[in-house]
């Protein structure tokens, strides 16, 4: 319960950043005019002089970098941890193996759910291609119940690198809704296991608010987790 609550608080905190970003951008006069419909008719165009704004350029950004964090999803949790260990479940409790099980204790388990870093390039308005890297890790160690001696670490790390395609299916000046699909490879590293495996990540619905700097929340599946949030920046390589 406490775990779920923490994730909810974390997501809410992420959401808190996005209205602030939006508030700042919407104060730009030109954008305000567009949203309020001032420039939607020919008449109004005649009445109101066109004012140049750097935002005109900004809405045609070519590059996009974003940093995000995803709450654990069923798939991402399974890939990191095979689920069973995260809940501290004792899977075998017949005697005498239970005696040996009790001889080992484990420290609190800490997990960093999926951190992601993504770069995208705008191929055409609303369509981005790029690469996404993710990292997730879990840390815990096992010690001897009787002596208290640290025996070994149960750490596990997932590092994925994927190609990403994103389509924005709703675009407004500061608000964008999109979906994306990423495919690539993931390396799983841990003490007693590991390997390279094909990996995917899908964003079913994503919402970004802001123009140059923006915040985003997403709902998806795959290695990225279930609900994700983060911040990003769009820019051009030269003015």
């Amino acid at each position: 319960m406490a775990r779920k609550l923490r994730y909810i608080v974390a997501v809410v905190a992420m959401l808190c950043t996005t209205p602030l970003v939006a508030q700042e951008v919407i104060s730009d006069e030109l954008i305000y005019d567009r949203i309020s419909g001032f420039m939607t008719t020919a008449d109004s165009y005649d009445i109101m002089p066109v004012r140049k704004s750097k935002n005109i350029k900004e809405i045609r950004h070519r590059h996009n970098i974003r940093l995000g964090y995803g709450a654990p999803g069923l798939f991402s949790e399974f890939m990191l941890d095979n689920i069973g260990m995260a809940c501290d479940c004792a899977l075998h409790f017949d005697y005498p193996s239970a005696i040996e099980h009790r001889r080992h204790s484990t420290s609190p388990r800490r997990q960093l759910s999926t951190l992601s870093l993504q770069y995208s390039y705008c191929i055409k308005p609303g369509f981005w291609l790029g690469a996404k890297g993710t990292y997730a890790g879990v840390w815990q160690y096992t010690y001897d119940t009787i002596t208290g001696k640290r025996l070994y670490d149960n750490n596990a790390h997932n590092i994925a690198l994927m190609l990403d395609a994103q389509i924005a299916w709703l675009r407004r000046d500061i608000v964008e809704m999109y979906s994306s699909l990423s495919l690539g490879l993931m390396a799983h590293i841990e003490r007693a296991n590991g390997g390279l495996t094909p990996m995917f990540d899908a964003v079913f619905v994503g919402l970004s608010v802001g123009r140059k700097c923006y915040g985003f929340v997403e709902v998806g599946a795959g290695i990225g987790g279930s609900v994700r949030g983060g911040i990003g920046i769009r820019f051009n390589s030269k003015n």
């Binding site: 775990r3 923490r6 608080v9 974390a10 809940c87 501290d88 004792a90 484990t106 420290s107």
Partner: peptide
């Protein structure tokens, strides 16, 4: 928000015996 995320990292109490 970053600090909140970091505090959300503990996912199990472990098994202290």
């Amino acid at each position: 928000s970053t600090l909140l995320l970091l505090t959300s990292c503990k996912v199990g109490n472990g098994e202290q015996r």
